[in-house]
């Protein structure tokens, strides 16, 4: 599969440059600081303890991961070189997105240490299974945010612009639920359905709902589709 070849090469390039390590160090450093503050005194033995914090941190780190996906190729004019290879546009987009997912998953795996601490401290009395659903939610929300990041990376060659646009849109998805309080019932319902927090919160509570999985999967598909269309638009003249 050419998708995985592209993803593999992209991931290799990421981990052969200092960028991935800087992002990882920053992520673990800041998360660790939050963890030490939260657990400074008493701590609730709760699987939800860090799930929301990890979601909030994704808002800041995902634009940093996805900003170079296609924007860098445009800036260095290597995108034209890439498209002359026998690969389809969707393969390029999905490959780049998968590489970003790879780095994001490494970040999430590293954050499992916090639950390991809690599990040991509680001598096994912690409810462990919902941690799985919280992580499933984090992976799904990351999928969608990275797809948004890939899309904005495809429309500009400036990485900073791509990151800022991605941040703005994913923050809007995060906070749109709060806007519901100014509207009526139907508007509130619509905004709730659009909001990523509404769908993620269920996973963080320990509930796996196919409806929420569908939301994140289709949201990811939509932004990846738009990225492909953007990539195709270069041939319109």
């Amino acid at each position: 599969m050419r998708v995985f070849v592209i993803a593999g090469r992209e991931l290799k390039a990421l981990f052969l440059s200092p960028i991935a390590y800087i992002v990882l160090a920053l992520y673990f450093g800041i998360m660790g600081l939050v963890w030490l503050i939260v657990t400074a005194q008493q701590v609730q033995v709760e699987y939800r303890l860090m799930a929301h914090e990890l979601h909030v941190f994704a808002l800041f780190f995902i634009p940093a991961i996805s900003m170079r996906a296609l924007a860098d190729e445009r800036r260095t004019r290597t995108l034209e070189l890439l498209v002359t290879q026998p690969v389809r546009d969707w393969e390029i987009v999905v490959g780049k997105w998968l590489a970003c997912m790879g780095l994001y998953v490494v970040m999430l795996l590293g954050s499992l240490q916090f639950w390991a601490h809690l599990h040991v401290w509680s001598e096994g009395s912690m409810d462990d299974l919902p941690v799985l659903s919280a992580y499933l939610g984090l992976v799904l929300v990351g999928m969608m945010y990275l797809a948004i990041g890939t899309f904005f990376s495809s429309i500009t060659e400036n990485q900073v612009v791509a990151a800022l646009l991605t941040f703005t849109v994913i923050v809007a998805f995060y906070f749109v639920r709060a806007l519901g309080s100014v509207g009526t019932g139907e508007l509130q319902d619509i905004l709730m359905q659009v909001s990523t927090t509404y769908h993620f919160d269920e996973f963080a509570r320990g509930i796996v709902d196919t409806g929420h999985i569908v939301y994140f999967a289709l949201g990811t598909f939509l932004f990846l589709f738009m990225s492909v269309r953007t990539l195709e638009s270069r041939s319109w003249g």
């Binding site: 919902p130 409806g211 929420h212 598909f221």
Partner: peptide, 23 residues
């Protein structure tokens, strides 16, 4: 996509993974 999300919500299956099934 919007229609799919609607169908997904309408015909969803749910699993409560909490030990005491609190939800």
């Amino acid at each position: 996509v919007v229609f799919g999300v609607y169908l997904g919500q309408r015909y969803s299956e749910q699993w409560d993974l909490t030990e005491d099934r609190i939800y």
